[in-house]
Amino acid sequence: MPRKKITIAITGLNNTDNPGPGVPFIRAIRESDRFETTVIGLAYENLEPGIYMEGITDKTYLIPYPSSGAEQLLARIEQIHRKNPIDVLIPNYDAELFTFIKNEGWLRERGIRTFLPGMESFMERTKDNLSSFGEKYDLKVPKSLPLTGAHQVDQLFEDLDFPVFVKGKFYDAYKAWDKHEVSTLFHKISAKWGLPVMVQEFVEGTEVNVIALGDGKGNTIGAVPMRKTYITDKGKAWGGITIDDEKMLSLTYDIIRKTKWRGGMELEMIRTRDNEYYIIEINPRLPAWLYLAVAAGQNLPEAMVRLALDEKVEPFHAFKSGKMFIRYSYDLIGDISLFESITVKGEL
């Protein structure tokens, strides 16, 4: 079968110690037998490694941050689209999803497909809504309270015990052992990610994650559970292994069925010693470790692109457990002229 030629535009090229899913997504889609893909990288920062890596993007453009307003971001995308028509757009940062979900129709009118969660699903799973999300869908979640001012810290700890996690609206999570630490973290996190800052009960156990893809009708197209084997000081997986955990899978199917989840998802859970599962976060996109799922037999990026193109996709039913990944770092060598091109022209 001849491979179908498509062009995808993708963000999240920050393959750093806090990596985005862009680079592994591209790796997966390049391995597809169905597609012959031209990849347009969309970078917010001029040092995102994916810009400079060999064989990753065919062309990369700088785009303005969502914080400068949808209008500017969309104008830039339209400009890029005129030069290199885009079939499918894959945003990968939590902070940009609001803007892309809200403007899905605008993109579609221009022939750019996406496969994103609906605004309602997206909003109800945010960190500050986790408690009500748990209540609504009958899930165990750690107690978590929003903090909108440092003066509320005292009041907060009438209901919580230390240690706690202090989390930013979009990113960043730190463990804190006393009120003073919470206040300091509040200022640090709110300056970066705005309000509220979430304070979450610390549940003791093993951190396990599931990568999944929902078709928007309640069906799970694929799901692979993973246990982190090595965690960086930023709490990111530096190594992990696929596990055959029935309960995690059925929890995932259940959530996707009830929320009619559309698009990629990462469920972060804690498995306690008593084999209870607490949902600690629901990320509305595929995670940076998505290539592990590909290696285990589920090319979810390919399935996602097919769904975006309205193709019929059969769910995956199996994956190999015991597949593992180990991240490594590697020094890419470039010349200042590459940097000049991306910073002066905004493209490379």
């Binding site: 970078a43 001029n46 700088l62 303005p64 500017q72 830039r76 910073t343 002066v344 905004g346």
Partner: peptide, 16 residues
């Protein structure tokens, strides 16, 4: 100054 990380607005539509 071009800071590593922070994108420059040259070549892009002005925000003003």
């Amino acid at each position: 100054r071009i800071s590593a990380g922070i994108p420059d607005k040259f070549g892009m539509q002005s925000r003003i």
